[in-house]
Each structure stands twice: as structure tokens, then as C-alpha cells.
Design a protein around this nucleic acid. Structure first.
Lengths: 199, 199
DNA sequence: GTCTATAGAGCGATAGAC
DNA sequence: GTCTATCGCTCTATAGAC
């Protein structure tokens, strides 16, 4: 996913994959080094310590997901279509970057306080973008929700779940899965969902 | 949560709490021992190794949640009310046992193959109980879902998310939160949700 | 920038006295 | 069943040659 084959990027890519599979505490610097074909000490020429690799992986994901999901949101759309736009690009991003999403959810607790503060703030921004869509829809009377904050979190955890089970090699195509989650997410806040045009 | 204050139960309780906070790989036998006021070697009088503690914690959760959520399901009810019954008891259980739910989702990858096989089977049974409710509702024409299997997983991950943020000390009461998730879950499969009687 | 070598600490697990 | 003591191993991180 990272562009450029510098050693630093190779280390980040290897760490992302290993962290997603075994967890931050389940991966050693030796394993990361071996994955990029280098010797253990060499990693410290590119990152000051193990924690910095985790922070780097998480921050890269946050900026990429912001660019892919939050930035394109069109404020001129009505709440239902804005929500649909959000959910569709969010699920697409989750499927295409499942390792990152898995890490974002699982390894918050592995962050030391300094890194955690910045990353938690970016996560809050992401959550509040969805929450404001839900609030608009509630005020406009097109959503049926009793608490926008809780419904925002419930939608996000629902959509994060796709990374746990979806595999490109499985029976469903990404497009099928995206459409299914769009339906579930829109319906969960009481928005009307209409089947997309036949493909 | 475990009844009886035998040393074995105290070890299991301490491990559950520590595993939920720092992850299986982030907790040492020494920390568990210190939490129960014993010395490290003493744990091995009650469990053969660290992995056995994790398996024990997970299995206890599976049997308790089965008893609390799956066993009471009333097959005579129509799909909508059966789903509502499932979701309500499931969310209640998740809130009251958030450490267990967190561990069940996060530490599957920390299980060695032997323990994983049995626990994955019980999880599949749990998921298929929900899936069969969804299929019944789909066949009866009362749910709007394009794939019962995906919607079942999406409901379960939505409901598991409550453990990430809900705290008893927060602004919402458990009853409020349960009701909100019941609404979101029922609406997500296109079932009609009517506000519960005023309390 | 990459290597070898290793320091220093913490890990799971065991042995044996009581 | 609990203690003390310790083995053998792996970990993160550093030092210094090339």
C-alpha cells in the first residue's frame, strides 16, 4: 500500500502485516527485520524504537482514510445521500485496507500516552463527521435514531467488523459486500435504502 | 463474575481483567500472580501454563453467554420478536461482561490450534443461531436483507462494539444503551422497531 | 546504511524445601 | 498448596566495525 520501496517503507509494510496478524506485543523486531531481509539492529537506522513503527503505521492509515472518506464528503447533499456516500467509501476503504483497520481497532491499547493523544484526536474527528450527518438527518426527520452519538459508534463498529471475516479469495465480491453493508448501515439509522441499479 | 473464591477462580478473574486491558501477550504470569497476592510459581498448581488460563477464561464466557442468550430463545415467537429477544439479552450480556466480550474478539489469534478449534466451533454455533433467525425473517418477508450471513456478522460486530466505549460511570444507563442498540440492530435488518413503553 | 555482537531486562516454566 | 530460587530463552535496544 505504501508507495516507494525505500527500506523505511518496506519496514512499515512488514510491520503492518505482522501487527495485524499477531498483534503489536506478539511481534518482535527480529521478525520484522527478517521479513524485510535485514538484520535486527538495522531497523533502528529508520525508526528510533518499536513504538515509533506502530505510531507511524497508525498515522499513515489515519491520513489516508481521511483523504479517502472524510475529505470527499459533499456538504450540499441531503443527509441520506451524504450518509450513503460516507458508508460506501468507508466500507470500500476498510476492505482495501483491512490490516490497517484491524490495527486501528486492536492496538489502541498498545500506544504509549504520547502517540495515543494525537491518534485518539484524529479518531474523534472521524467519528464526529459521521455523528453530524446523523444529527442532520435526525433534525430533518429522515432518520429514526434515539441517540446520534451511540448510533454513530454502532455504525462504525459494524463496518469495522468486515475486516474480521472478509477475504478477497472468498465467495463474495467486494462490490457485493459493500452493497450489503451500505444497506445494513442505512437501515440501522432508519434511512430508506433502495437497491442500486442492476449491474 | 466467577462464583467461589478459590485460588483458581481468583486467578481466572485477575487474568480476565488483565487480558482485557493489555492483551494476552501484554500480560505476564508475574503480573497475574501479583494481582492475586501469590508468587509466580504458584499459578502452576492451578493451571498447566499461560495458554490454559486464556482457554479457561474464553470457555467460561462461552458457556455463560450461551446460557444467557441462546438457551432462552423461544422458537415459538415470530422472527421479529425472536430477534428482539436475542439482541436484548445479547447486549445486556455484553454490557455486564465487557471484559469477556473484548477478549473473545481480540484474542482469538492468541489461541494455539488445539484451544482454537473448540472455541471457534462454539462461536460458529452462536453466529448460526442468529443467522437462522434472519433467514426465517427473510423467508417470511418481514426482514429486508440481501445476505443473512453477512447481516448476521454485521449485527454481531455492531453489538460487540458497545464494550469498546461503554462505561458504567458514563452518562447513559445500561437500559438506555440496550434500547438504543436494539433499535439499531432491528432497523439494520429492516425489521420494524417500536419504542418500548415509557418507563 | 548495514553488519556482528552483546548488554540488560523480562519472560514462561520447573525443581525442591516446607 | 505455597514458597524460594533459578534455568534457559527471547526480548528491545545499543555499540562499534565496515
Amino acid at each position: 500500500m505504501t508507495t516507494g520501496h525505500t527500506t523505511k517503507n518496506l519496514i512499515r509494510d512488514a510491520a503492518r502485516s505482522l501487527f495485524a496478524e499477531h498483534g503489536y506485543n506478539g511481534v518482535s523486531m527480529r521478525e520484522i527485520a527478517q521479513d524485510v531481509g535485514k538484520h535486527p539492529g538495522g531497523i533502528y537506522n529508520h525508526f528510533p524504537n518499536k513504538q515509533a513503527i506502530l505510531v507511524d503505521v497508525m498515522q499513515e492509515n489515519l491520513s489516508r482514510s481521511h483523504e479517502a472518506v472524510i475529505a470527499p464528503l459533499n456538504d450540499d447533499l441531503d443527509p441520506s445521500h451524504r450518509l450513503e456516500q460516507f458508508v460506501r467509501s468507508h466500507v470500500r476503504y476498510n476492505i482495501a485496507n483491512s490490516d490497517d483497520i484491524f490495527i486501528a481497532y486492536m492496538e489502541l491499547r498498545s500506544l504509549e500516552p504520547d502517540g495515543a493523544a494525537h491518534i485518539l484526536k484524529e479518531r474523534k474527528d472521524y467519528e464526529s463527521a459521521l455523528r453530524s450527518i446523523l444529527r442532520d438527518g435526525q433534525n430533518a426527520g429522515v432518520f429514526k435514531i434515539s441517540d446520534p452519538a451511540i448510533h454513530a459508534r454502532s455504525v462504525l463498529s459494524m463496518l469495522a467488523g468486515v475486516t474480521v471475516w472478509f477475504r478477497q479469495s472468498g465467495p463474495q465480491t467486494p462490490t457485493d459486500v459493500v452493497e450489503c453493508y451500505v444497506q445494513a448501515a442505512l437501515q440501522s439509522v432508519g434511512a430508506t435504502y433502495s437497491t442500486p441499479p442492476e449491474r
